[in-house]
Amino acid sequence: MSGIFKQASGSHATTLAPAPAEPVKVRLKINGQEHVLNIAPWVTLLDALREYIGFTGTKKGCDHGQCGACTVLVDGIRINSCLTLAVMREGQEITTIEGLAHSEDLHPLQKAFIEHDAFQCGYCTPGQICSAVGMFNEGKANTLDDIKEQMSGNICRCGAYNNINAAILQVKGEMAGE
């Protein structure tokens, strides 16, 4: 981790040139692979993923942290990628919807979403699934009411909530060995 702070000149911290700046080098580890980008400091993680690397699975909904479509996992923790700068995420493990499946073998939540028809238009789905993975990692959701509350950061404009909850409940049950 210490290496990322000293790449500039051996000073205490990494200084990026003042604005309007030359693009700066940002190293991001996404779905297990390192990507080196030359981007401005104001590029959000969401825009870095979609516009600079091509991971368009992560969706831009509101771009203000109100809808959850941009949810990704950083070191296993779910966050809104629209409200963080890519440059702030150097040295962390970023997982997007593209990183959940193992080649043709879908993540259990992806399978359950298909099984339960947990979407109509599908635009919120990558965020819903990444958010549910993050919720499982947190381990604080025990009941349907807990799931509803802890998934409230993911809005589904089609109103597929009942099926989304059913898919999440099923996977939760599978994980508990039911």
Partner: peptide
């Protein structure tokens, strides 16, 4: 967003001095 420069501070003194 308008353009801005950026510094990642590594200790409190750094941060206070920078800002």
């Amino acid at each position: 967003m308008n353009s801005f420069s950026y510094l990642r501070a590594v200790n409190v003194a750094d941060a206070v001095e920078d800002i």
